[in-house]
């Protein structure tokens, strides 16, 4: 019986693979040509925002979907990078290069996430999740109260947008919505493929073993805390990348990007998209942000509908949008 199953697989796998490649290719074409279809700058920015939030939701998937760690306030780490870059550009060096601010934002996030993660991984699953809220609220309050530096609830304005250049080779400006779209697309694509590779590597296999059974993982010799911490730092560093991208997309930073509701939104995007796939998070971010944009034209209580949609999804489609696609692929294999 087993041999017939593996035979079926070997016969039908190429077709599923072909579909996969076609889907990837189509998606790339669409993404590259998108600014030609969508000429309204508002929607160009909205799509860029989806890419950024997709990356953020994906980085949450690294800890939630692959390692089994729940963070309620993942957006906080995006906020830390955004404020770091914003404050640096406003107060220190308005001419700071794009690459330097990337390095700065991500480094600061890592320096903060490291000790916080060190503490968090020393607790169990539930306490871990609660601590993410505690620290998230702490960052938020800190930003909110340091009005003199951060602008408090007004936000931080006047962030100079740097040119996108490699050495002397100027590619564009972060103030142009189309340039910023392509730049974001490149950064997000690099982060996505790199993370995908890491999750498919032996390292990703260790993370999955922790998700599947933490106790057994320890008893095959996995230093569970160390790997959890590394996954956490990877996820926070990626959130940092999102923060820098977001700062230049908006040209300002507001504390609402790191409040509890923002943290919940990212979690919803990841869940909407489906856990443990990485690409699902982008679908989730798209559904969430377009949904928000669409429903909010009809009612200001769009969160109610979004919450309802997520509830229904979690109950009836726990694997999210990615699960739906996977189900289709499995069916096409039979």
């Amino acid at each position: 019986m087993m041999s017939s199953i593996s035979m079926d697989n070997s016969r039908l796998m190429p077709r599923a693979k072909l579909y996969k490649y076609i889907a990837w290719l189509l998606m790339f074409l669409v993404l590259i040509l998108l600014p030609y279809f969508i000429t309204n700058p508002f929607y160009q920015r909205l799509v860029t925002e989806i890419l950024i939030y997709g990356l953020l939701a994906m980085s949450l998937d690294v800890i939630l979907g692959y390692t089994g760690l729940l963070s309620f306030m993942h957006a906080a780490y995006m906020g830390i990078a955004a404020y770091t870059v914003g404050i640096f550009v406003v107060y220190v060096d308005a001419q700071a290069s794009l690459w330097f601010t990337f390095l700065l934002g991500v480094t600061v996030v890592i320096l903060i996430a490291w000790p916080v993660g060190w503490l968090q991984v020393r607790t169990g699953g539930f306490a871990f999740a609660l601590l993410t809220i505690a620290f998230g609220m702490m960052y938020y309050t800190l930003v909110w109260k340091s009005r003199d530096i951060t602008g408090g609830d007004d936000g931080l304005f006047g962030i100079t947008r740097p040119t996108i250049a490699i050495g002397d080779w100027v590619l564009g400006s972060t103030s142009n919505p189309v340039d910023v779209y392509y730049f974001t697309l490149c950064v997000v694509a690099i982060c996505f493929f790199l993370t995908k590779r890491i999750m498919q590597s032996p390292f990703g296999a260790v993370l999955e073993s922790i998700r599947e059974n933490e106790k057994r993982a320890a008893f095959i010799g996995v230093n569970v805390r160390r790997y959890k911490l590394q996954a956490w730092i990877l996820a926070c560093a990626l959130a940092g990348v999102c923060g820098v991208l977001f700062t230049y997309l908006k040209g300002s930073v507001s504390p609402t990007m790191m409040d509890a509701s923002a943290g919940g939104s990212v979690l919803m995007m990841t869940l909407l998209g489906g856990l443990g796939t990485l690409w699902g998070s982008f679908v989730g971010a798209g559904l969430f942000i377009f949904g928000q944009d669409y429903i909010s034209t009809m009612t200001e209580h769009w969160m109610i509908f979004m919450g309802l949609a997520v509830m229904l999804l979690v109950i009836f489609m726990p694997a999210g949008a990615a699960g739906l696609v996977n189900r289709f692929i499995t069916k096409s294999k039979d």
Partner: peptide, 22 residues
């Protein structure tokens, strides 16, 4: 396979080959 493979991987090393396939 993966149940046994991961145990063997932890024993024999290679967990930090982050750019190779498992």
């Amino acid at each position: 396979f993966e149940n046994v493979r991961i145990a063997s991987q932890i024993k024999n090393g290679g967990s930090y080959k982050i750019l190779s396939s498992r």
